Amino acid sequence: MTFPIRTLAALAAAGLAFGAATYTPPAAAREYVSVTVGTRPPPPRWERVPPPRAGYVWAPGYWNWYGGRYVWVGGHWYAGRPGYVYRPPVWRPYGHGWRIERETWYRDPHWHR
């Protein structure tokens, strides 16, 4: 009777060892593309900001670099994230050009549940 139990235990151990040896965790879905442009972006366009919506954050429009030129991306709503603050994209001087810092959400240090 102990022979089948030992065999099953050995098979289970071998299966666990094989699974642990072949497991690869999923890659983090994070990408970052740095864009540096030689010319200053145009001034922001005027946009009518809609009235506030409960549970949403307004993301203002901005100039994006696409296809070798600046392209306007209109403002839009994002679902709010409790405990986080939205930071819109911004172009900053970088060396002899301009670099965009993409939009992001960062942890609100003053937020308490």
Results as ranks from 00 to 15, higher is better:
residue 7 T to G: 00
residue 103 E to L: 02
residue 110 H to R: 08
residue 85 V to M: 13
residue 49 V to P: 04
residue 57 V to G: 03
residue 101 E to R: 02
residue 23 Y to W: 14
residue 30 R to W: 09
residue 81 R to Y: 05
residue 88 P to H: 11
residue 59 A to F: 01
residue 20 A to M: 09
residue 89 P to F: 01
residue 80 G to P: 07
residue 3 F to H: 12
residue 20 A to Q: 03
residue 4 P to S: 04
residue 64 N to Y: 13
residue 65 W to T: 06
residue 99 R to P: 01
residue 54 A to Q: 15
residue 83 G to K: 10
residue 55 G to H: 06
residue 82 P to Y: 03
residue 7 T to H: 11
residue 96 H to C: 03
residue 78 Y to D: 09
residue 92 R to N: 13
residue 49 V to T: 09
residue 76 H to M: 08
residue 68 G to K: 04
residue 80 G to D: 15
residue 19 G to T: 00
residue 14 A to E: 09
residue 83 G to Q: 14
residue 106 Y to S: 12
residue 42 P to M: 13
residue 45 R to G: 10
residue 70 Y to W: 00
residue 9 A to Y: 12
residue 35 V to K: 04
residue 96 H to A: 11
residue 53 R to A: 11
residue 12 A to P: 01
residue 41 P to Q: 01
residue 88 P to D: 05
residue 55 G to P: 04
residue 88 P to W: 10
residue 94 Y to Q: 09
residue 31 E to A: 08
residue 61 G to Y: 02
residue 112 H to D: 07
residue 96 H to K: 09
residue 87 R to A: 14
residue 17 A to Q: 06
residue 14 A to I: 04
residue 71 V to R: 14
residue 83 G to P: 10
residue 83 G to R: 10
residue 41 P to V: 01
residue 107 R to W: 06
residue 8 L to F: 14
residue 56 Y to D: 08
residue 54 A to E: 13
residue 81 R to E: 04
residue 52 P to S: 03
residue 31 E to R: 00
residue 96 H to G: 05
residue 73 V to M: 09
residue 112 H to A: 15
residue 84 Y to R: 07
residue 106 Y to G: 03
residue 55 G to S: 03
residue 36 T to E: 06
residue 66 Y to H: 13
residue 62 Y to H: 09
residue 22 T to G: 00
residue 23 Y to R: 04
residue 111 W to A: 14
residue 76 H to G: 11
residue 34 S to Q: 15
residue 66 Y to L: 11
residue 84 Y to T: 04
residue 69 R to L: 12
residue 96 H to M: 08
residue 104 T to Y: 14
residue 76 H to L: 12
residue 51 P to T: 02
residue 51 P to M: 08
residue 21 A to D: 11
residue 31 E to Q: 07
residue 33 V to Q: 00
residue 98 W to P: 02
residue 66 Y to R: 14
residue 62 Y to C: 08
residue 105 W to E: 07
residue 71 V to M: 10
residue 90 V to N: 04
residue 85 V to E: 10
residue 14 A to K: 00
residue 49 V to Y: 04
residue 66 Y to V: 13
residue 60 P to I: 12
residue 42 P to K: 15
residue 13 A to S: 07
residue 80 G to L: 02
residue 19 G to C: 03
